[in-house]
């Protein structure tokens, strides 16, 4: 499974998402690759992804995709991430 974390710069906030998503997925026993990328590269990087993690600000720019687009409000809240990732990959 491939999961892509999207933000404006592809570092920083998407990096936080990547780190915490990896922690949650490990706890859930899900094997997945999590990649941090910037919004300009989303079409290429997320072409084969099952899930895109991002903020509301980027949903429109991500546009049409086969992946589940999951909006995260609190990037540090692993409970929120656990619930949303469980719904997305379960």
């Amino acid at each position: 499974m491939k999961i892509v974390a999207i933000c404006g710069a592809g570092i920083g906030s998407s990096g936080i998402l990547k780190v915490n998503a990896e922690r949650v997925l490990q706890r859930l026993g899900v094997t997945a690759t999590v990649v941090a990328a910037d919004i300009d590269s989303v079409a290429r990087v997320a072409a084969d992804a099952q899930v895109i993690l991002t903020s509301e600000e980027f949903v429109e720019a991500i546009g049409r995709t086969h992946a589940d687009v999951v909006v995260v409000h609190n990037y540090f809240d692993t409970d929120e991430l656990t619930q949303k990732l469980t719904d997305a990959v379960g």
Binding site: C7, G8, A9, G10, I11, G12, S13, I16, D38, S55, E56, E57, F58, N74, Y75, F76, D77
Partner: peptide, 14 residues
């Protein structure tokens, strides 16, 4: 979007 958690902004650039 850099306000990634309640009360916290992560200011950064490339």
């Amino acid at each position: 979007y850099i306000v990634i958690a309640p009360g916290l902004a992560l200011a950064h650039a490339r």
